[in-house]
């Protein structure tokens, strides 16, 4: 048990604070929703009803999609783009998809390489891009979910004000959908750009997200 916790410290810790904050979001979200209901002489809803409603899921999915887009783009962009001096970048001479030797593929696999890395053909092609593929799939699915749940919330608001409801294809062209989307994207892109450039001149001793404290500012791609 102690070994399980130590071996999975990062995924356990972040999984735990994810659940705690999701519960916090549900409680405060339900409270906010019921406050709105009271202002409009509507009936309050239970917490259980709220967490199974489109209002809650539109908010959750809106944030998920931007986070997964952030990582998807970062994984893709760092294949081709470098940032001199950054620990978040690879070295300038390794731009691109790299050689089989650098990626330990073909004749360069080792006995304990993953099976699909050794398999060759389509399986190695799929496995070679599996992180980007899965992150992209989660991004697309959560963005789709945001648009579907967001439309329900939007239409409920429209009905409240005796306005016409919209179809899904129409909803994805509305300012509401794009405002919800872009307000999340902008913060993700700034955070990524900041991390790339701040890690050139700033350090955190002990973190692999930083260069070693004594590493020169010009040194690119050296985890601490």
């Amino acid at each position: 048990m102690a070994r399980f916790v130590r071996d999975n410290g990062l995924s356990l810790a972040f999984g735990a604070i994810f659940l705690a904050t999701l519960i916090g979001q549900a409680i405060s979200g339900a409270d906010t929703f019921n406050h709105g209901q009271a202002l409009h002489n509507g009936d309050p809803i239970s917490l259980g009803h709220y967490v199974t409603s489109a209002v809650f899921w539109a908010d959750v999915m809106e944030n998920w999609q931007s986070e997964y887009l952030q990582f998807t783009l970062y994984i893709f962009a760092t294949i081709w783009l470098i940032q001199k001096g950054s620990n978040e970048s690879k070295k300038p001479d390794r731009v691109g998809r790299e050689s089989d030797e650098q990626q330990r593929l073909g004749t360069h696999t080792q006995p304990d390489s993953p099976r699909w890395a050794k398999a060759g053909g389509w399986r190695t092609t799929v496995f070679s891009n599996s992180l980007l593929l899965v992150m992209t799939a989660i991004w697309i699915a959560s963005w789709l979910a945001q648009s579907l749940a967001g439309r329900i919330v939007y239409n409920a608001e429209q009905l409240d004000h005796q306005a016409a409801t919209v179809s899904w294809p129409t909803y994805v062209t509305t300012a509401d959908f794009w405002n919800r989307t872009l307000q999340n994207w902008q913060s993700e892109f700034l955070a990524i750009g900041s991390m790339a450039i701040l890690s050139v001149f700033l350090r955190q001793r002990g973190s692999p997200e930083s260069k070693p404290v004594g590493a020169p500012h010009a040194e690119t791609a050296s985890s601490g």
Binding site: N8, W57, M61, A141, L144, A145
Partner: peptide, 30 residues
């Protein structure tokens, strides 16, 4: 590595379940 693989499966299962729920809810609820 067995426990790490288990964590991987827990994360994937949680994410897929949440996405599936949200998409189905978005399609069915009117």
């Amino acid at each position: 590595m067995r426990s790490v693989r288990m964590m991987f499966m827990v994360y994937i299962a949680l994410i897929v379940a949440a996405l599936a729920y949200a998409i189905v809810l978005g399609i069915l609820e009117h």
